[in-house]
């Protein structure tokens, strides 16, 4: 019979909380860089300037189709050979997940922008708005509302994917768990607690996301007319 003993884990829970903090930092920074970069990639891809749209389409597809672990190893181990940079696990993590998530966010932005009726662009154009003004004042405010569920979904995916940073020795929740499991010889309890932490975190996020979605659906904004 397996004996459960959480005491060893709970007495070192501050180690795990430190890891949780680092996980949240990586996720937050990847979002902070990834969302604007995603908007930029989406606008480039929608651009009529051909090199711009082809270039960004390539970047988006490349980062959507390669495994995030390969990307992370590439930035951490390969990039310093190519150019003279000192890569830390933290920087490699931020760079990888910013670009990786921006590729997904770009597609969310693009879908949102394309879902707006072309009459909205025309209405804006007819009162003398430039492309930038139409986008900022008319199209994006409506598109972003529709994109919120997809954004939440992607952010949750991102939070889960950040566990990969433990492989380059960044002290996220997963890394701390590995550490603690080896130290205490209690992998059963350690990984159970870690799973519960991730569950609580992501479950809360997704409940919020569902609530937001419901509220948006109720406000019933009809965007076409």
């Amino acid at each position: 019979m397996v004996e459960w003993n959480f005491l060893a884990v709970l007495s070192d829970i501050d180690l795990l909380l430190l890891g949780l903090g680092n996980t949240l930092v990586v996720t937050a920074l990847a979002l902070a860089f990834g969302i604007p970069l995603g908007l930029f990639l989406a606008l480039s891809r929608l651009s009529t300037i051909r090199p711009l749209s082809v270039g960004s389409a390539f970047i988006i597809e490349f980062f959507r189709t390669t495994p995030p672990l390969v990307q992370l190893f590439w930035f951490f181990f390969a990039l310093p050979i190519l150019i003279d940079v000192r890569m830390t696990p933290f920087i490699a993590a931020i760079v990888t997940f910013s670009i990786q998530s921006s590729a997904f966010f770009a597609e969310v932005f693009r879908g949102g922008i394309l879902s707006i009726d072309k009459g909205q662009w025309e209405g804006a154009k007819a009162i003398g708005m430039t492309y930038g003004q139409s986008l900022r004042r008319i199209v994006l405010p409506q598109a972003v509302k529709r994109m919120i569920p997809a954004f939440m979904e992607r952010s949750i995916e991102l939070l889960k994917t950040t566990t990969l940073v433990s492989t380059v020795a960044y002290a996220d929740l997963m890394f701390q768990a590995n550490d603690l499991a080896q130290k205490t010889f209690r992998p059963l309890e350690v990984y159970t607690v870690v799973a519960v932490i991730y569950f609580l975190l992501i479950f809360t996020f997704s409940q919020i996301s569902i609530a937001v979605e419901h509220r948006l659906a109720r406000s019933g904004e009809s965007t076409v007319r």
């Binding site: 009459g119 209405g123 405010p141 965007t223």
Partner: peptide, 15 residues
Amino acid sequence: TRIGMVFQHFNLFPH
């Protein structure tokens, strides 16, 4: 800005 236009489908800004 000097030419007003009104469309078949109104194109009002719903937000």
